[in-house]
């Protein structure tokens, strides 16, 4: 257990040893800041303009999904590919650790960084929720905010697990990032091409099942949690983690 904690700590701090962690934080906060500005603008607009729920602009904007597609591959590309390229994986895998411990530690460290990245956005909440300083009451329904954060946490877990899995198969960080970007796009791109690929019936259903932006637009940002999406995110995450463990073990029988 303590060994796992040590490994998590090392992996987490590794993000701050390289510029990549800072670059990701910078990119993320710039985009979120712009979206926050837009949100405030819309929330205070006169009828019939404006939006009805506080997080809508934040997660329903194409700029948001662009960075949501790019950031997980940037965070996960180094996890195994770098160790493979520099050979340090041999040091790691000959330490008295089980393969699953290595995988879980790396995943948790990466996920922790993802959550830390979202922390500063909590500062927007008092404004977005119209928090009254005197009475500590919120002026706008907070439900959609919590569901949006839950959605982000779970969807993020899915994209990161995909990235980690890809990283465990390749040697080059660049290749890892590109492949996980492409795989991640499978869950994003159809949302923006929905009218083109499926206009009705079963096709439209299918597109809705896998399109994360649609889940946010129709459910999370409106304060709804739909079990279908939770099952999708959790099962893909678990499957990818499982695949990563297998991929590490494969060195033994290849």
């Amino acid at each position: 257990m303590l060994a796992t904690l040590t490994l998590i700590r090392r992996e987490f701090s590794a993000y701050f040893f390289s510029p990549i962690g800072y670059a990701v934080l910078f990119l993320f906060l710039i985009v979120m800041g712009c979206l926050f500005y837009l949100s405030v603008d819309e929330l205070t607009a006169e009828d019939p303009y404006g939006i009805s729920t506080s997080m809508e602009i934040l997660v329903n904007n194409i700029a948001f999904w662009l960075i949501f597609a790019i950031i997980p591959p940037l965070l996960t590309m180094r996890l195994f590919a770098e160790e493979r390229a520099t050979g340090t994986i041999e040091m790691l895998l000959t330490a008295p650790l089980h393969d699953w411990q290595v995988v879980i530690s790396k995943y948790l460290a990466c996920y922790a960084f993802f959550l830390v990245m979202w922390l500063p956005t909590l500062l927007y909440l008092p404004v977005l929720l119209d928090w009254q300083v005197g009475t500590l009451k919120v002026g706008i329904d907070p439900g959609p905010v919590w569901t949006t954060y839950i959605g982000v946490a779970l969807a993020g877990a899915m994209f990161l697990s995909i990235g980690m899995c890809v990283s465990s198969f390749v040697k080059s960080q660049m290749v890892a990032a590109l492949i996980s970007l492409v795989l991640g796009l499978v869950f994003l791109i159809f949302a923006f091409a929905e009218p083109l690929v499926a206009s009705s019936g079963i096709g439209r259903q299918g597109v809705f099942f896998v399109s994360v932006p649609l889940h946010f637009a129709r459910n999370f940002s409106r304060g709804l949690i739909d079990s279908r999406q939770l099952i999708l995110y959790c099962s893909v995450t678990l499957f990818c983690i499982f695949l990563t463990i297998r991929s590490l073990e494969s060195r033994r029988w290849r």
Binding site: L2, T6, L7, T88, M91, P96
Partner: peptide, 21 residues
Amino acid sequence: CPLYTDMRVEEYLNFRAGIKG
């Protein structure tokens, strides 16, 4: 002898000691 080149010597050994229990 592959090592994590971004860590300090003592820090690295502390880390290795940690994962070795």
